[in-house]
Amino acid sequence: MLVYILKRLAIAVPTLLILIIASFLLMHAAPGGPFTAERELPPQVLANLNAKYGLDQPLWRQIVSYLWGIIAHFDFGPSFIYKDRTVNQIIAQGFPVTITYGSISFLVAVVVGVALGVTAAVKQNTWLDYIAVGISIGAQVLPNFVMAPILVLVFTLWLGWLPGGGWQGGQWQYLIMPVIALSTSFMASIARITRSSMLEVLTSNHIRTAKAKGLPMRRVIARHALKPAMLPVISYLGPAFVTMITGSVIVDIYFSTGGIGKAFVDSALNRDYAVMMGVTILMGTLTILFNLVVDVLYAWIDPKIRY
């Protein structure tokens, strides 16, 4: 197992390198640059800016010095647009915000989603099943960009219970709406996957055996059915977790949380090369890491899987 993990980590390095180089080239291939503005800059001013940010160098040299900055100093460079900030500062401000509301949303999505899915499967074709399926379909068809304005309308404008946005260091009043908006569609997917996987497991031989032994239903589900039923859910959770903690531009836009999701989209639109690279690398690393975690969890849950 340890050898497997080390091997996977070793492969991660070239993977990241390819990701960095590919994004770097793609970004520079996009029309316009960080200093393209409605008021075209005089050539001399543009030349001064390019010199300051190293954009006058050949591409290969830019890549090399960028990589060197990361390896030698863990320095992702200055933002080209938010000029009094470095990429490290932008990520240091935005990422804790995102990881906070992302993790809570993840927990909510998993707990509620699994509970709904299991209930629906165990009580298949009863009113409980219909309600659970109804909730999950409802949550699925309400994308967060519809959900967010509705939440603000109801809880802020009509009821006046919650602030309409902001972060304030992550106080609970400011967390509720972002978490609901972000978690619902994930919750719905988890519920659906859990339900179908649970139904499949419940008809399998070992469950029949367990039932035949006279075990109470609660025990059958908790001890024998839940673990195998979780396998497809877990493979979904890895990428879902990364998606949630690397931020949602919708949540950031509607709730002004100041998270990393908005910074990422803005950096692409602004051609803020450095911020875009920084966030891409962050997301790439997390994706690789959590895919590994999922694979390790697999082996732990399913004795048939051995690396």
């Binding site: 802020t156 836009i253 908005k262």
Partner: peptide, 15 residues
């Protein structure tokens, strides 16, 4: 306050 969506800004003003 930074609010990236104009309609959302209006809602929060009204609140």
């Amino acid at each position: 306050l930074t609010i990236n969506d104009v309609n959302q800004g209006l809602t929060r003003y009204l609140a």
